[in-house]
């Protein structure tokens, strides 16, 4: 069902954990739908992401996309991190089954939510960053059987 990359990131997730006094923390998802992702960012004075950690409650794809998303933003500038889309996360994982695409959206939203928190704490505005939805399942239609 999952690609080797997904399985690798699920079995050996990178950057699991918390960052104390993180520059930004974002929690997205919905326990009702079975996915919650929390992203911690440590951003230095030059706006570079020095560390990134995550915690995720969710399926194999949710864990793998969180893990991959943290890898993709590590060492990047805030602006570059903003460009890490769900598509980029999916491609880096060699794809996801169609029913799991929303997990990659969760990863993108998680990064955005953490960046939003950082911007709010710093009192700055990040160009191109919109207030993230807290609940990514909004607007997702249930399949009809």
């Amino acid at each position: 069902m999952y690609s080797e990359k997904v399985m690798d990131h699920f079995q050996n997730p990178r950057n699991v954990g918390e960052i104390e006094n993180a520059s930004g923390v974002g929690t997205v998802g919905n326990a009702k739908c079975g996915d919650i992702m929390r992203i911690y960012l440590d951003i230095d004075d030059d706006g570079i992401i020095r560390d990134c950690k995550f915690k995720t409650f969710g399926c194999g794809a949710a864990v793998a996309t969180s893990s991959m998303a943290t890898e993709l933003v590590m060492g990047k500038s805030v602006q570059e991190a903003l460009q890490v889309t769900n598509k980029a996360v999916m491609e880096a994982l060699d794809g996801l089954p169609p029913v799991k695409v929303h997990c990659s959206l969760l990863a993108e939203e998680g990064i955005h939510a953490a960046l939003w928190d950082y911007a709010e704490k710093k009192g700055i505005k990040i160009e191109g960053l919109e207030k993230p939805k807290n609940d990514i399942s909004e607007g997702l239609e249930e399949e009809d059987y």
Partner: peptide, 11 residues
């Protein structure tokens, strides 16, 4: 009985 094994968003 998780959602991810049922193919929908509901458990």
């Amino acid at each position: 009985g998780s959602a991810c094994t049922s193919g929908s968003l509901d458990p």
